[in-house]
Design a protein around this nucleic acid. Structure first.
Lengths: 205, 205
DNA sequence: GGGGCTATACCACCGAAGCGGTATTTTTTT
DNA sequence: AAAAAAATACCGCTTCGGTGGTATAGCCCC
């Protein structure tokens, strides 16, 4: 290849992205062209840095990594997205096609895993962490499910996670308690959980 | 100083600890003597590596970083503990004396912060992230509070966080539902929260 | 051997959460 | 314009969660 692959790193932990940059340094086929620390900057950095690949920390502050992925997918469908995640909650599984990402690597993986993932997506393939695949059986999935929530539902989900009761939410949003209950019910159904704790577990990718 | 400070890094994210090691490399007064990836290894690595300072990721798998701190404090009270944490939940505050740690640095801080913290604790001082101090007013604290939970309570807390209902827990532990309710009540009281969501928020340091 | 802590168990009350429906209006997509 | 999706509202019912008590048996520590 003549041109190196341009990579944008989005992670709010300097030490972590430093580690990644360092790990990629010896590999001339990759060039880290940008290094941002929050979701908003990802969007604004793309036009100038023109990355081929985005290495995205899904657990960034302001946190809705899932929404960000959706937006990236809409605006720049050709850019490859490699998701880095801290967690592998036992009941979270990925349906890559639906999530619209090209690779998913756990943060506690090492350099080799990251390089393998990068190599795969550069070939146009996809790469998902072995730990995820191992659990991909019970066709259950928290990741793509969140994508299925309407924006109103996501809003309410966030408020639930913040510890607000149905009443609090109704008051804050100027809607009926009954409406909130309905949303709550629908969210639970879509996420396939039976209580708040499960909801938090499943949506804290 | 003639002898460098010996540092043990405990973090399950290779890229992260790589970043830290790299950041410390130019500073001859620090020597990273060990690099482990889980809580159990911390204990076993201490006798051989004889660290002066432990840089500890509080969010490690098997997760009870708080318990680990307690154990370290008991067994090696002279070793300095610098805690690295991913999160700064809005209602978490530290009472350093109670928690028994020497420094608390957020993972999204940079090299300078880490160096400052290290310098302080080498002088025998303590260092707590500015973001924490800013919130240290409303003398409220999730950190040291978890330390006050009995082991049974911690066990039940974990089950609650995992999405188990009071009934589930009672069945699993072969105790009365009423007992579980009591524990639940006591946990809520000790942690000073009013629902499961708050509990999770507060105990996910 | 007394004082404190923990785990256990029980009770009553109330409000919130969760389950299963129906239904209307608005918005978006086709 | 028709179809689909989302947001809104309502109902009844059951279970669970959260509050505020009491109490006892066992343990460890000074």
């Amino acid at each position: 290849m003549s041109q190196p692959f341009r990579i944008l790193i989005a992670d709010d932990h300097p030490f972590f992205s430093d580690g990644v940059i360092n790990a990629l340094l010896p590999y001339k086929q990759y060039e880290v062209v940008s290094n941002v620390t929050n979701a908003a900057d990802v969007i604004s950095a793309i036009p100038t840095s023109q990355p081929h690949i985005i290495i995205l920390d899904i657990n960034m502050p302001g946190q809705n990594g899932l929404e960000l992925i959706g937006r990236l997918r809409n605006m720049w469908p050709h850019i490859k997205i490699l998701v880095l995640s801290m967690y592998m909650p036992s009941d979270i599984n990925l349906q890559p096609e639906k999530a619209g990402i090209d690779a998913y690597v756990l943060k506690n993986s090492g350099t080799e895993t990251l390089l393998t993932a990068l190599a795969e997506i550069c070939k146009g393939e996809k790469y998902f962490d072995a730990n995820i695949q191992r659990q991909n059986h019970h066709s259950d999935d928290g990741f793509s499910k969140v994508l299925k929530l309407s924006s109103r539902e996501k809003e309410i989900l966030q408020m639930i996670k913040d510890g607000n009761s149905t009443n609090d939410i109704a008051e804050a949003l100027f809607i009926s308690v009954l409406t909130v209950k309905t949303h709550r019910k629908n969210i639970m159904a879509k996420m396939d959980v039976k209580n708040v704790a499960g909801l938090i577990k499943k949506t804290s990718l």
